[in-house]
Design a protein around this nucleic acid. Sequence first.
DNA 1: CGCATTATTGAAATAATATTGCGTATGCGC
DNA 2: GCGCATACGCAATATTATTTCAATAATGCG
Lengths: 166, 166
Amino acid sequence: MPSHRLDPIDRKILSELQADGRMTNVELARRVGISAPPCLRRVRTLEEQGFIRGYHAEVDPRELGFEVQVFAMVGLQSQAEADLRAFEDRCRSWPLVRECHMLNGEVDFILKCVAPDLSTFQTFLTGELLTSPNVGSVKTSLVIRGAKDEPGVPFDILEERLTEAG
Amino acid sequence: MPSHRLDPIDRKILSELQADGRMTNVELARRVGISAPPCLRRVRTLEEQGFIRGYHAEVDPRELGFEVQVFAMVGLQSQAEADLRAFEDRCRSWPLVRECHMLNGEVDFILKCVAPDLSTFQTFLTGELLTSPNVGSVKTSLVIRGAKDEPGVPFDILEERLTEAG
DNA sequence: CGCATTATTGAAATAATATTGCGTATGCGC
DNA sequence: GCGCATACGCAATATTATTTCAATAATGCG
């Protein structure tokens, strides 16, 4: 059990599972260069320690009938902590809102939304988001096309930095 | 093999695997109410037909030393198709850039970036992004805190619409 | 250093799961 | 109703996950 600092094998495991989360443990063990039992133990430990939060199938939104993706920049009227929390809670309750991040600068939040079509999004926008208490300004931008959509973090960067540092 | 339209069982499969991509096929079969063999056949078909693009472990960026997340709004000088493509290609080559979406409106692209620390991001920003050909304006916003980060699409919405329609 | 302690490993055995083969049911066009 | 197509589930087999355990490598301490 790596007490808190990960060794190269752990990082390789995370990197491989980020790229293919359904790889068999046998294959994973082969790739990271150890046998299956310790490999599985490492994966379990990484899960327990929170390095791995979960596993997800990546589905194709278009194929499933979600044609529309929108980024919404939201400014609130009050930035008091309680009001921020209230808005975040509301975002969590909206299925169309997949991501909600609090930002610095003029815009308070950025929301990534997914909807079957434009009218569904418009209904949500005018009926829910804009009429929500404390919401000041909302600027929306439709995604014309996606150019890159990589999950998680760049492990290659991590390796670079660690080899430099020793 | 559902020729192209998914039945309720397929949608349930996708929904379950989106929520837990490492569920065993036996458990998945139990949840969707069929036996293991046809369940596995459906999963394979969904993969082949592109409804499932892949599986990924969700890792914790903070725990792995990626403390900084930034959204960058990029405006280009030329929006000619070749220039757009060139910029997208460049984004794909930058590990720090995890997502790149082309938008309508005044901003041409939104980029989601992840970095170990602010200085790493600044180095990327000034040394790569800002000095990139055809890049006009870049406005960056640091993520203060994440409030919601759900993967994929809201299947509950899908079910609602389909039951309404019949 | 050298020994004791602790962690981690891998081979082997077992349990569970994935996968294949096949016979059967169900629906649909004729 | 008949035959084709599709999808199902049972049973058998192959593969994988998981546990057990002895051996090895790392760690700390006298």
